Amino acid sequence: MAVHDSFLVRAGRVLALDAHISRMAAAIGWERGRVGSEYAELLLAVEAERDSEEHAGTADRVPEEHAGTADRVPEAPGWFFPLVTFDDGALAFQLRPFEPHALRTDASLWTCAEPDTRTAPTLKGPDFPLQHHWRAQAQRAGADEAVLVDRDGFVREGAFSSIVHWRAGALCVAATQERLPSVTEAAVTRAVQADGIPVTRCDARVDEIRSADEVWILSSLHGIRVVHTWDGKPVPAQGRARRYRERLLAMERAASAWLADLEGGTAGGSGGPMMTNRDRLGKEAAG
């Protein structure tokens, strides 16, 4: 049974890497230090690739569709969407370079006709075939993401996203435990609470959420996307997303800073093995 993790590296910066490490460690039963050592290898590979891009003369630029807009997304060397996979007792990763112009700030939703039948909803990976099937159905219906509901009609999450909504000045998140612990949702929740805004957990059906003040889907790739239609019906929006996109950007840290933490043992790593990995990679590059 393969377990996956993925996160955006935006121009060499990463959001909440420690939370990704903790989630993977809990999923596969490894100590955080051991998982952190593997993630340090990934960051070293990202940094090496970024250096090669910079030396090749890749220029910083801003995609046309974001130029002069409130949600401006700068493009620079070092954009990746790595995939981390645990299978057959080992962790491996793919760097997967990413084009910033593919980032989205809005989305449309489609509700699955059948209830959620995943066998491991709290893990990322084992039920991917089902999730891809549901998302393909959503796309055939003209939507971006599929919404998964339980047998009582309560919304759990998107096929590959968390779903939150705003009502009466509070951020509402799904109460169910039958869903993936979302790193992005946790980061958004912290930012909202830091503003003194309440965060509530509640079970809600599609009609209840669709009539909220604003609905977001959250993922480690796109961050916050504002839902504009759901099953073909318009969804209200009040313009809250811009502030919290900026807050998430401010929470990102340079890959080099995460590496320093991992090597110092402050983000779940043990210093010795990771320092050895860095030295070994440096020697290989020099050779």
Rank of each mutant, 00 (worst) to 15 (best):
M1N: 07
D5E: 15
F7M: 10
A11I: 04
L15K: 05
L15Y: 10
A19G: 02
I21V: 07
A25C: 04
R32E: 15
S37M: 05
L44A: 09
A48F: 00
R50V: 06
E54K: 12
E54T: 14
D60C: 13
R61W: 15
P63C: 11
T69W: 08
A70N: 07
D71G: 11
A76H: 12
P77T: 03
L83G: 08
D88I: 00
A90G: 08
P97A: 05
P97E: 06
T105P: 02
A107M: 11
S108A: 15
T111Q: 02
C112M: 09
C112F: 01
D116A: 08
D116Y: 07
L123N: 02
G125Q: 03
P126E: 12
L130E: 13
L130I: 13
H133R: 13
Q139M: 13
R140W: 01
V147K: 01
D152L: 10
D152W: 11
V155W: 06
G158K: 02
A159P: 09
S162F: 00
S162E: 07
I163V: 13
V164W: 00
C172D: 05
T184D: 10
T189S: 09
R190F: 00
R190Q: 11
Q193L: 12
G196S: 03
T200A: 13
R205T: 13
S211L: 08
E214K: 02
I217C: 08
L218P: 12
L221T: 07
V227Q: 06
H228E: 14
T229P: 03
W230I: 02
K233A: 15
K233E: 15
G239S: 11
G239H: 08
A241W: 04
R243F: 01
Y244D: 00
R245E: 11
R245Y: 04
A250C: 08
A250F: 06
M251D: 14
M251I: 01
M251Y: 02
W258T: 07
G264P: 02
T266N: 05
S270R: 14
S270Q: 13
